[in-house]
């Protein structure tokens, strides 16, 4: 167990591995984007939202953690240093989900989700088990009726749900979601956030999710990280991280943060600064 994880006060399960990111730098050739970034350790079962303006480095951060970009620094899961692990081992711990699936693929939803399981050697043999798992996930996300539909006949939102199902079915230890609800209607936005939270708690996953809707981020996350220009601007509970000052700083908007009549945390934007 890492010192950091066991020293966090809220850590009720002393043996649970935390995700620790320290001094992470990443980017593209001649264009560093994330510079020496450290985050508070993320505990099992937690959902952490990453918010920030366009080009803040949110996707770059996720991709760097997933090992898709050359990065320096440290990404640890418990005692295991993830950065620089061979791809196959890394994939066992961490899965990155891009925003969308490509459009022109002649695969059914079920094949797409099963493919994510069967690509790993240990799952290759058992087709029935893979199918059952895939169907379970589709049911949880409310798209089991689409199982036999071809991907290229789905709407953008339906494809996004399929993409999420494909990742969830792998049950990674760390789940990195890049704007998983950007194309979804109200019902599915809520449904996805709710399911992701429940699955994270059930399977003891650590979820780091990029979101644009601040009210949704505030309502469904344990913790918020505000990113701008590749650096952390604010980090903490929704109330701590999302304040009018931070929003004005980061998004250049005049905003109010209020409790609605039902008591939930709501961000209202009045004007640009």
């Amino acid at each position: 167990m890492t010192d950091i994880a066991s020293s966090t006060p809220e850590n009720s399960m002393a043996s649970a591995p935390a995700l620790t990111i320290e001094h992470l730098s990443a980017g593209y050739r001649n264009r560093p984007i994330i510079k020496n970034l450290s985050l508070m350790p993320m505990q099992e079962g937690q959902v952490v939202s990453l918010i920030g303006p366009n080009a803040a480095g949110k996707s770059t951060l996720l991709r760097a953690i997933a090992g898709l970009l050359p990065a320096t620094g440290s990404v640890r899961l418990g005692d295991v240093e993830i950065l620089g692990l061979p791809l196959v081992d890394q994939a066992r711990h961490i899965t990155y989900t891009p925003q969308e699936l490509p459009q022109q693929i002649a695969l059914t939803v079920l094949e797409t989700v099963m493919g994510a399981l069967q690509v790993s050697r240990e799952n290759r043999q058992d087709v029935d088990a893979a199918m059952q798992k895939a169907i379970d996930v589709l049911e949880r996300l409310g798209i089991s009726h689409l199982a036999m539909e071809q991907l290229d006949r789905l709407s953008g939102g339906q494809r996004q749900l399929t993409s999420l199902a494909q990742t969830l079915v792998r049950e990674p230890k760390v789940l990195l979601l890049d704007e998983p609800i950007s194309a979804l209607d109200l019902h599915y936005q809520l449904r996805v956030m709710k399911e992701v939270r429940e699955i994270a708690a059930e399977k003891r996953m650590i979820v780091l999710v990029v979101l644009h809707d601040l009210s949704i981020a505030a309502r469904w996350s344990d913790r918020i990280v505000v990113l701008a220009n590749g650096a952390v601007v604010a980090e903490g509970t929704p109330q701590q991280a999302i304040t009018p000052e931070v929003l004005s700083d980061v998004y250049q908007v005049k905003a109010r943060v209020e409790s609605c009549s039902q008591g939930s945390f709501t961000v209202m934007v009045d004007d640009v600064v």
Partner: peptide, 19 residues
Amino acid sequence: NQMTVLRMGEDRAHSFGIN
């Protein structure tokens, strides 16, 4: 199987452990 997943994008394939 790996090729099937590659059709869904390179990042995804990488992230599922495909070299």
